[in-house]
Computed example of a mutant assay.
Amino acid sequence: MIVDAESRTDSDLPTFAPAQLHPVVWSGASAHWTTHQYRVAVREAAEGLTVHWKERLGRNHVDDTVFWQQTLSPGAQEPGKPKLTWPGALDDKTVRSMRGGLEPLAKALNLLATGLNLTVRNVTTHTRTELSEQEAMERLAAYSYLARLLDR
Rank of each mutant, 00 (worst) to 15 (best):
T50K: 11
L109N: 04
L57N: 04
D92M: 06
L72W: 00
K54F: 05
G115A: 06
L105M: 11
E78Q: 14
G75H: 10
T125R: 09
H61C: 00
T119C: 08
L109A: 07
V120P: 01
R59M: 12
K107H: 05
Q134K: 10
Q37M: 06
V62Y: 03
T50L: 11
G100E: 05
N117V: 01
A106N: 11
R96N: 10
D63Y: 11
W86N: 07
L131I: 08
L57P: 11
L111Y: 03
V120A: 03
V51R: 15
K107G: 00
G88Y: 13
T124L: 06
K107A: 02
E44N: 15
A106R: 13
D91C: 04
Q69L: 02
T119L: 14
Y38K: 08
D91P: 02
N122H: 13
K81F: 14
W68C: 01
E133R: 15
Q37R: 14
L49V: 04
T50Q: 05
R99F: 09
L72C: 03
L118C: 00
E103W: 12
K54T: 08
S73F: 02
D63V: 04
L116N: 07
R99A: 03
V120K: 06
N60F: 02
T94Y: 10
A46D: 05
Q70T: 07
M98G: 13
V42K: 11
T71I: 04
E103Y: 08
W53D: 01
R39S: 10
Y38V: 00
R139F: 07
R43G: 01
R96S: 14
L84Y: 09
Q77Y: 00
V123K: 11
L72V: 02
D63E: 15
T125I: 10
T114G: 00
A45Q: 05
E103R: 15
L112M: 11
A108F: 11
R96A: 09
E47C: 11
T129G: 03
T71N: 03
L72H: 03
P74N: 09
G75P: 09
S132P: 05
E78A: 14
Q134N: 05
S73Y: 01
P104I: 12
A46E: 07
G75Y: 07
S73T: 01
V120Y: 02
L131N: 06
E138K: 15
T71G: 01
G48H: 12
D63M: 10
A89W: 08
R121L: 09
V123G: 00
A41R: 07
G58T: 01
P82L: 09
A41Y: 09
G58V: 02
G58W: 01
E138Q: 15
G48V: 12
A89H: 13
L112K: 05
L131M: 13
V40A: 12
V40R: 13
T71L: 04
Y38F: 15
V123M: 09
K83M: 08
L112D: 00
R56M: 13
L57V: 02
H126C: 07
P104K: 14
Q37I: 01
D64K: 12
R139N: 10
G48A: 14
E135M: 12
W86P: 00
G101W: 12
A89P: 02
R99Y: 06
T119G: 08
H61E: 12
V120C: 10
A106G: 15
T125C: 09
K93L: 14
R39L: 10
T119V: 10
R128G: 13
E44M: 14
V62T: 14
M137R: 10
